[in-house]
Design a protein around this nucleic acid. Structure first.
Lengths: 233, 233
DNA sequence: CCGGATCCCGGGCGATACTG
DNA sequence: CAGTATCGCCCGGGATCCGG
């Protein structure tokens, strides 16, 4: 029996509440101080292929609320991971762009993604942003499977278009026109992921209208085989 | 003027509150669903060199509270990143140990640490756990600087001891006896970090009693030069 | 309509006290 | 020593509001 809960109210306000830091010299701990808050790393992911506006970011991050996105952008700017620019006159709008250092977060996305892909809980059928899909190509590319293969593959996903260049055991992806691509995929990112990672035949996806493939069909088929998922743990 | 705020109280309880998931097929997003909660990755860091008990973990994670540590351990076990074992009879205690898949988180700690070390906000003089220090050696090792150098370097930090083996452009660290080491550092992790990363001379640290160096002094000096910090961004 | 700002609310997280 | 219980704060989610 509690006798007389003596709430001597001393909320203990130290110096500051130390602003929620790990106070740890370990580099990984400091990284979490910088970008460990919810959504922060995913905001950077969305910016990996170039600047975006506030609403473009929201579109690629279903579930984030406007206030949280605002806070994350402020924090990322404050630490020097991104910069906020004003667009030239007619568009009275802002864009957010990673700094060179901010862009160096890419390997983190790669190793995190490869690690998590081995989890039995990973569900590759969930929605996917265009930036995530392009990053996954760079991450999961298997040079051995691409032996002797050289291609420029275009992607049209919503308003965005990307060009993936494969050759010499390398795989690079960048935002850009598909004009000089030998084959172009057009459709939702999820549909393309179904072809590449889910093993769904291109013809099936085209039949249901989820995807269109224009150009060199053989290259398209070959392309879908270059990104093996790691074995489940 | 607000007329009659019609609080039609519908707290909107969807199906579940969906348990705070990103619902994103991106591998990195799923990784954050798994280990994105506060402290989770640092708990794994403390276990990188072998099993530990509850209080050992608390010691290496100053600031974590018992209930949060309990929750993180439960979650990490649930996802298959660690296992909880009961120690043989006399010690009626538990230890926590990473699974092989859990141990594969190491590259994440490496790339995160390298990235954050370039931040101007990084303060290498903060406290540091022994596990963090050993990981930093594996992360920051510069093979070129170690050309032609071969050594077994022991560390005694509190109750723990580690052996770092350097040779053939490789640097490996493991928990273990220092018996066959050519040189042994004994002291707090922070003092050793001051020598290796802060450029503080060994003699100075020994003079103030922060550190002792036994054995091959030349190897000790050379060792401290092998781990250059990356340039600030 | 875009790019946020403001408010409310619930739950994650931190601190402390307590228990086997 | 190894957790469990409790409580309060503040972060994060959702809706609404507002200036250009």
């Amino acid at each position: 029996m509690k006798l007389e809960k003596i709430t001597t109210r001393r909320p203990a306000k130290k110096s500051p509440p130390s602003a929620r830091s790990y106070d740890d010299a370990c580099g990984a701990a400091h990284a979490l101080d910088l970008i460990g808050e919810r959504w922060a790393l995913l905001v950077m992911r969305e910016l990996m292929f170039g600047p975006k506006r506030f609403s473009d970011l929201r579109a690629g991050l279903p579930g984030i609320s406007a206030n949280v996105l605002t806070q994350r952008l402020e924090r990322l700017e404050e630490i020097g991971a991104l910069s906020r620019r004003k667009l030239p006159p007619p568009a009275a709008s802002h864009v957010y762009e990673l700094t060179p250092w901010g862009h160096e977060i890419e390997p983190v996305l790669g190793v995190l993604g490869r690690w998590a892909a081995r989890s039995p809980l990973h569900d590759p059928t969930l929605p996917l942003s265009a930036a995530s899909l392009m990053l996954s190509f760079k991450t999961m590319f298997d040079a051995k499977r691409a032996k002797g293969f050289k291609a420029r593959v275009g992607f049209r996903i919503g308003e965005e278009s990307f060009l993936v260049r494969i050759g010499d055991g390398e795989c690079d992806a960048a935002r850009g026109a598909c004009d000089d691509a030998e084959v172009v995929f057009a459709g939702a990112a999820t549909a393309i992921a179904a072809a590449v990672y889910g093993g769904v035949p291109l013809k099936a996806l085209e039949a249901q209208g989820a995807l269109t493939v224009e150009g060199d069909r053989a290259r398209a088929e070959r392309f879908t085989s270059l990104f093996p998922l790691p074995p489940k743990m």
